[in-house]
C-alpha cells in the first residue's frame, strides 16, 4: 500500500520504537564489559574486561540452575509440540464434534491468563492430587514440566492452526482419493506440511519454559531451582554485573539462533513455492 504523500511521522515512530526496544539490551551488553561493580558507572581505565564472564562461568549455582532449566525446557517443548499439534489438527481439520467450543476455549485461555492465576491453580491441583492419589509426591521438576507443557501447548496449537489454515485441504483430499487412510495421510501429507510450524512451536515452547518465573515459583519444590528463580533473587537485590554478562550471553545465543532459523525457513519456504509452481506446470 502506498500513501499519496510520504509523511515523516511513521518512519520517526518506527525508529523511536526500535531504539526503545534495543537501547536497554545494548546498554546491558555494554556494561557487562565494565570493570566497576557499580554496573552503570563506566570505569574507563580498566575496561573493557571479561572478568564478569569468568566469574559467571565459575558460579556453580547459576550453572546448575541453567542446566536444569535447559532440561525442563527441552522436555516441555517436546511434550507441548506433540499435544499442541494434536489440538491444532483437531481444531483446524476435524470439523464439528461435541465439546469443540470448550476445547478451543481452554486452549486459547492460557495465552492470556495472568501467570499468578495459572501458577496458583496448578499448585493447588498438585497438592490436591497428592492428597487423593499420592501423585505427584512433593513438587519439583515433574510438576514444573507439567505446568509448562500446559501453557506452552496453547502456543503450539495456535501456530499449527494458522499454518493449517493457510493450506486448503485439497492435498489431503487428493491423498485420500488415491486410497491413503487417515494415518497415512497425516504422515505423508499433513505432517510434512506443518513441520515448520511444529518446529517453531517447539522453539517457542522451549523459550517460554526457559523464561518462566512466576508459574515455576508456584509449582517448584526444594531442589528444583530454575535459572529465572536464581536471576530473580539476585536482581531483587539490585543490579549486578554478572547478571549483565549472563544476559549478554543469552542474547547472543538467541540472536544467532533466530537469525539462522529465519534464513533457513525463508529458504525452505521459497523452495516450497518453487516446487509447487513446478508441480503445477508439469501437471497441466
Amino acid at each position: 500500500m502506498s500513501l499519496p504523500r510520504r509523511s515523516i511521522f511513521v518512519p520517526t515512530v518506527l525508529a523511536f520504537g526500535f531504539a526503545f526496544l534495543y537501547v536497554p539490551i545494548l546498554s546491558m551488553m555494554f556494561f557487562s564489559l565494565n570493570n566497576s561493580s557499580l554496573v552503570t558507572v563506566w570505569d574507563g581505565p580498566n575496561s573493557p574486561t571479561l572478568k564478569w564472564y569468568v566469574k559467571l562461568l565459575n558460579n556453580r549455582p547459576i550453572l546448575d540452575a541453567a542446566w536444569l532449566s535447559i532440561k525442563i525446557a527441552a522436555v516441555n517443548a517436546t511434550g507441548a509440540a506433540v499435544l499442541g499439534t494434536l489440538v491444532g489438527l483437531v481444531l483446524a481439520r476435524f470439523g464439528r464434534f461435541r465439546g469443540r467450543t470448550l476445547l478451543s476455549a481452554i486452549t486459547t485461555a492460557p495465552l492470556v491468563m495472568p501467570e499468578v492465576i495459572t501458577g496458583l491453580s496448578m499448585l493447588l491441583l498438585f497438592v490436591a492430587l497428592e492428597q487423593w492419589i499420592g501423585w505427584p509426591s512433593g513438587r519439583g521438576v515433574t510438576t514444573i514440566t507439567i505446568a509448562h507443557i500446559t501453557f506452552s501447548m496453547s502456543y503450539v496449537s495456535v501456530i499449527v492452526q494458522s499454518r493449517l489454515a493457510s493450506f486448503d485441504e485439497s492435498l489431503e483430499e487428493a491423498a485420500m482419493d488415491l486410497g491413503a487412510r487417515p494415518p497415512r495421510v497425516f504422515r505423508s501429507i499433513t505432517l510434512p506440511l506443518i513441520f515448520p510450524a511444529i518446529l517453531s512451536g517447539w522453539l517457542l515452547s522451549f523459550t517460554l519454559s526457559w523464561d518462566d518465573l512466576v508459574i515455576s515459583q508456584f509449582v517448584a519444590g526444594p531442589g528444583s531451582t530454575t535459572l529465572p528463580m536464581v536471576i530473580f533473587s539476585k536482581v531483587r537485590l539490585g543490579v549486578s554485573p554478572d547478571v549483565n554478562a549472563l544476559a549478554t550471553i543469552m542474547v547472543l545465543i538467541v540472536a544467532t539462533g533466530v537469525v539462522v532459523s529465519a534464513v533457513v525457513m525463508q529458504r525452505q519456504e521459497r523452495r516450497r513455492q518453487r516446487e509447487v509452481q513446478m508441480a503445477l506446470a508439469s501437471g497441466e
Binding site: I25, M28, D211, I231, F232, V239, N244, L246, A247, V254
Partner: peptide, 28 residues
Amino acid sequence: LMLIILPFWTSFLLRVYAWIGLLKNNGV
C-alpha cells in the same frame, strides 16, 4: 518483523532488569 520478535525470544526477566540499569538514580 524479525527485529520486533527478537527481544521476545530473549529472557523477559533480563529485559525488565535492563531497565533498572537505565532508570535508577545513578543509572544511564
